[in-house]
Design a protein around this nucleic acid. Structure first.
Length: 221
DNA sequence: GTCCAGGGCCTAC
DNA sequence: GTAGGCCATGGA
C-alpha cells in the first residue's frame, strides 16, 4: 500500500513539466471571460474567440454590457456553444453592474467566502468556473477541481469520502497549504499530465508518476 | 468519418 | 438527487 502525498505528486509533475503559467492574461476580465468560454471547449478555440472580442474592441465589462447578445454570440463562435455562452457572458456583466456598480475590481476584492456564492448564483457559472475565477482572476487560494483531477487521482487511488465537487475540493484544500500560486500551477499541471501522458500506451509513456501509480503503467482508465 | 475539448443548465424520474 | 439531453466549433 503506497501512501500518496498530494505535495509529492505536485513536486513530481512540476519537476517534469515546469511552470505552466496558465491564464497570465492581459487583464483579470480577460481571465474571467476565458473561464466561461473554455467550458467544454478546446483552449485554442477560446483564444480565437478572445481575439475576435479584442479586435472588436469589446473585451471589457462595458464593452460586453453594451453589445447586443446576437453580435456577441457571433464574435465568440469559435469557442462553441456560442449562443449559450453569449447569455452567460451577459449574466456575468449584469452581475458586475447590478451588484458592484460596474466595478470588476470591487467584485474581485471580496473574500472568496462571499464572492463564491454570488458567482454560483449567476447563470452559467458552476463550481469549477467560480473557482477558476477566484483562483486565476482574484488570486485567492481556492483549489479548482475538474474532470482531469478526478480521473487522475482516482487512478492514483486517491478519492474523497464523498464523490462530489466539494468532497474533492476539501480533499485537496485540507491536505495542502493555502498557496494560490501553487494551486494555480497544480491545477494546470494536472491537466498537462492528463492530456500529455496519463493512460497512454505503452505503459504510460514518460509518466512522472509511474512509480507511485497503482496501475503500474497499464494505461487503465 | 468519429471523437472530444480547461462545464453547466434544464427536464424527467 | 441524479441520470440524460442539450448547447456547437474546430482540431486530432
Amino acid at each position: 500500500m503506497i501512501t500518496l502525498h498530494l505535495l509529492d505528486v505536485y513536486d513530481r509533475i512540476f519537476g517534469a513539466y515546469g511552470p505552466q503559467r496558465w491564464w497570465p492574461g492581459d487583464s483579470s476580465f480577460e481571465v474571467i471571460v476565458g473561464a466561461i468560454l473554455t467550458q467544454s471547449a478546446a483552449w485554442g478555440n477560446v483564444e480565437k474567440a478572445i481575439t475576435n472580442l479584442k479586435a472588436a474592441g469589446v473585451l471589457s465589462v462595458e464593452g460586453i454590457y453594451a453589445l447586443p447578445e446576437p453580435e456577441l454570440a457571433q464574435l465568440i463562435r469559435p469557442s462553441g456553444y456560442f449562443n449559450a455562452k453569449a447569455a452567460k457572458l451577459k449574466a456575468l456583466v449584469n452581475l458586475i453592474y447590478e451588484r458592484f456598480d460596474g466595478s470588476l475590481e470591487a467584485m474581485l476584492s471580496l473574500p472568496a467566502a462571499e464572492l463564491r456564492p454570488l458567482l454560483l448564483a449567476t447563470h452559467g457559472i458552476g463550481p469549477e468556473t467560480a473557482d477558476a475565477i477566484l483562483l486565476y482572476a482574484a488570486g485567492q487560494p481556492v483549489f479548482v477541481i475538474d474532470a482531469y483531477t478526478r480521473r487522475t487521482f482516482s487512478r492514483l487511488g486517491v478519492t474523497p469520502r464523498r464523490d462530489t465537487y466539494e468532497g474533492w475540493q476539501q480533499l485537496f484544500m485540507g491536505a495542502l497549504p493555502p498557496d494560490a500560486g501553487m494551486f494555480n500551477e497544480y491545477h494546470a499541471l494536472i491537466v498537462r499530465h492528463a492530456k500529455d501522458v496519463c493512460g497512454r500506451e505503452p505503459r504510460c509513456t514518460g509518466c512522472p508518476l509511474l512509480e507511485v501509480c497503482p496501475t503500474g503503467g497499464r494505461g487503465l482508465r
